[in-house]
């Protein structure tokens, strides 16, 4: 199979890495945000439920 596709330059790879890191950080931030919001809204009650 030929690998004659569009090959990104080093600069393009660098930008792609930057975007990937930013998306990763944004997702991690959202996880943290929802965790903190849950604690704030439910307080200790977050553990107070039947299993």
């Amino acid at each position: 199979m030929s690998d004659d596709g569009i090959r990104p330059t080093e600069e393009q790879k660098r930008r792609q890495r930057g975007r990937s890191v930013a998306i990763g950080l944004a997702l991690a931030g959202l996880v943290l945000l929802f965790y903190v919001i849950t604690l704030v809204k439910m307080g200790p009650g977050v553990f107070d439920r039947s299993l």
Binding site: D4, I6, Q12, R15, R19, A22
Partner: peptide, 21 residues
């Protein structure tokens, strides 16, 4: 599409860095 040069790749996006967004 595969014959396109790298310059033409601009048309397909993926060129912006974080600062552009």
């Amino acid at each position: 599409i595969q014959d396109r040069s790298l310059d033409d790749a601009t048309a397909f996006g993926g060129q912006g860095d974080v600062g552009d967004y």
